[in-house]
Simulated assay, not measured.
Amino acid sequence: MASRTTFEELPSTVRTAIESHTGRIHRVDPVSSGLNSQVAARLHCDAGDVHVKGLRSDHKWAWTQQREAEVNPFLKGISPELLWRVKGSGWDLLGFDLVTGHHADYSPDSRDLPLVVDLLTRLGGVESPSIELREAGQRLSSYVDSPSQLHLFQGSAVLHTDLNNENVLIDGSHAYMVDWAWATRGAPWLDAGYWVIWLMAAGKHTPEQAESWAERVPTWETASPKALEAFALANARMWKEIGGEEPDFWTSRLVQASQEWSEYRQNLIKR
């Protein structure tokens, strides 16, 4: 988790550069959610409300700012629009159109679930941009039984890969996906697969219930049973490694959910 700096603690030169885009800032509301930003706040300004997030230019994750800036133009209606970028005085900050609403509720009877299906369906229709993105196989290569399985995750789709419900904002009847720092290129069904794990962890779905929602995303049909088994197993191994000996509350939920889904998938193959 990145240590937090308040907006008011930013160098005056940075705040002045931001005001060249926003006009006078009337109020600053700090944002506590999100783990990957050193600065996160809502700015209420002459030019309209903005969500600003950023990192010091020398931070080890500074490259994620470039990733978000490059992928945003291809995500119209899927991600809040990037309005400006300010770099200087040791900081790299992004200003997004502020989307109000609530974080998606992943519980089984939630009215948000069809909106997330629609969101993932719209994302599945995005053409792969000609920008640098990490490959899905690269990210999972340490957790598969054999390198020969990595082709199962290859593809040209733009993927979010972190379907944490806090990364999905519901504004009326429209869902948006935020925090594209880990945008990836790969098979089009992978985000629906990541969603299965989060539905189980955050929404307390059974594997069958979670997959019943993933099946409503058209790209899910492109996943073979072998691909799903390999993906579920790779994620179970990844979360077990992340959790270590004493995982925190949320990590332990993800460790358990990914393990249960992997076992479910392995049992289906055996039938």
Rank of each mutant, 00 (worst) to 15 (best):
A47T: 15
L10H: 06
R122T: 04
S146G: 03
W91M: 01
Q65N: 05
P207Q: 12
W63M: 04
L233Y: 07
E215Q: 15
D109H: 13
V71L: 04
L133G: 12
A69Y: 03
S258N: 04
D49S: 12
V116P: 14
L35E: 08
M238K: 05
R85V: 00
G88M: 06
H26S: 12
Q66C: 05
D118W: 03
R42F: 05
Y106N: 07
T219Y: 11
E221W: 09
H51W: 03
V158E: 14
S12N: 11
Q154F: 09
G243L: 01
D145Y: 06
A210V: 14
P11F: 07
E127G: 08
F74T: 02
D29A: 06
Q38A: 13
Q66R: 11
L113S: 10
W250H: 12
L82E: 07
E68D: 00
C45T: 15
G34Y: 04
D97H: 11
R85K: 14
L120D: 15
D179H: 08
W182Y: 14
G193L: 06
N36I: 06
H44D: 05
W63F: 10
E260Y: 03
Q149C: 12
D29E: 09
G90D: 03
R15Q: 10
T100Q: 12
E81Y: 07
R253M: 01
F7E: 06
H174W: 11
V117D: 01
K270C: 13
G23R: 11
E221G: 09
D179T: 08
L159N: 11
G95M: 01
T219H: 13
W91Q: 01
W213K: 08
D145R: 10
G23F: 01
G244A: 11
T5C: 13
G124C: 12
E241T: 09
L150H: 04
L228N: 08
A187R: 01
L35D: 06
G23C: 03
W261P: 00
F96Q: 02
K226L: 06
I242F: 10
K226W: 05
G54K: 01
S33N: 13
H21W: 00
P218Y: 15
I170G: 04
E208N: 10
T100N: 11
S57K: 14
T161M: 06
L10P: 04
A157Q: 14
G243A: 04
P188D: 07
I269F: 06
P247H: 12
S156V: 15
Q256A: 12
V50S: 07
I170F: 04
S148K: 14
G243H: 09
P225E: 04
V50M: 10
P108E: 05
E211S: 10
R24A: 04
Q259N: 00
M1N: 10
E241L: 08
L150W: 03
D49M: 02
V52C: 13
P73S: 08
E132M: 08
R122H: 11
G172Q: 14
T121C: 14
E135Q: 09
L228C: 08
F74Y: 10
S252W: 05
H174C: 11
A2R: 13
D118G: 15
M200R: 07
I18R: 01
A234V: 10
D58Q: 13
L75T: 09
P147E: 01
Q266H: 07
L98T: 09
P247I: 01
W63D: 11
E166I: 05
W61L: 15
E19K: 02
R42C: 02
D112S: 10
E135R: 08
L113M: 09
D109R: 15
Q65W: 00
D105C: 01
A210P: 00
E215W: 09
